[in-house]
């Protein structure tokens, strides 16, 4: 059994009177692609934000290698967790090179930085010719590739992707998913993917968590099985399944 890297154990997040997460427990194992799906407002993005200290945790714990860790962004990055936020959030006025280097906050050594960039460009060859281009000059698909590449600069053990295919044409979205698989296979990076684009994700995921109204309603180690039957339909239409 592969080791568990990151766990949320009974995490609850409240925004005022609203429960964004309700005692949610999620695990990400080494080298796994973990899908996180659910209807709008289910709390998917909140899961990632809670790990990075961007959402206030009322109760529950975040564990790293089964030890409790304070959910603060720079500590998570230091441990080896990277986050590619929704909407890519490329720095539009910085160059591609600068965007990549920005991703490496924990890398102090210039040689290591150069080597990491070279590694990443190997995986994303389209970016090689665009190093001096500004972020705003790239297409949507190129920006998403840059966001992924940037996320890999620190050579993370866990990569958390929030809606990586958002706003992309189906062909480009497919390329993004292929890249996700490539990342897993080449680098053995565990990847948590929050997505609305369910079918292609379930085809490749190793485990899926389905959220509804802040709760984990399905924890399925065989994600493809959800593509048959009506379990998912019932969740997305609002009926509780426990």
């Amino acid at each position: 059994m592969k080791g568990t890297l990151l766990q949320l154990v009974g995490v609850s997040v409240h925004y005022g009177g609203v429960k964004a997460l309700d005692e949610a427990s999620i695990e990400i194992g080494e080298g796994q692609i973990v899908a996180l799906i659910g209807p709008n407002g289910a709390g998917k993005s909140t899961v990632i934000k809670s790990v990075f200290g961007l959402a206030p945790i009322q109760s529950g714990h975040i564990l790293w290698h089964e030890k409790e860790i304070e959910p603060v962004s720079y500590k998570m990055v230091q441990q080896g967790v990277a986050y590619v936020p929704q909407g890519r959030q490329i720095f539009s006025n910085l160059t591609v090179q600068d965007n990549l280097e920005i991703g490496g906050v924990v890398i102090k050594d210039k040689k290591i930085m150069r080597s990491r960039i070279a590694d990443v460009l190997d995986m994303f060859p389209d970016l090689k010719n665009k190093l001096s281009a500004k972020g705003r000059e790239l297409s949507g698909g190129q920006q998403q590739m840059l966001a992924l590449a940037r996320g890999l600069i620190t050579d993370p053990k866990v990569l958390m992707l929030d809606e990586p295919s958002l706003g992309l044409a189906p062909k480009i979205a497919k390329e993004v998913f292929e890249k996700i698989i490539e990342i897993k296979e080449r680098r053995n990076t565990a990847i948590l993917v929050v997505e609305h684009n369910i079918r292609p994700l379930l085809e490749v995921a190793d485990r899926v968590f389905v959220l509804a109204r802040g709760k984990v309603v399905i924890d399925e180690p065989n994600p493809k099985s959800l593509l048959e039957g009506a379990r998912l339909e019932r969740v997305f239409l609002g009926e509780r399944i426990l």
């Binding site: 990075f52 990055v77 986050y83 959030q89 006025n93 280097e101 906050v105 924990v106």
Partner: peptide
């Protein structure tokens, strides 16, 4: 410098920068 890169990124999107671990 690399410091300058970060301050320019703050201008662009400070929240995103915090996500990457920058204080």
């Amino acid at each position: 410098s690399s410091f300058g890169r970060v301050i320019k990124a703050i201008r662009d999107d400070e929240k995103a920068l915090q996500i990457f671990g920058y204080r």
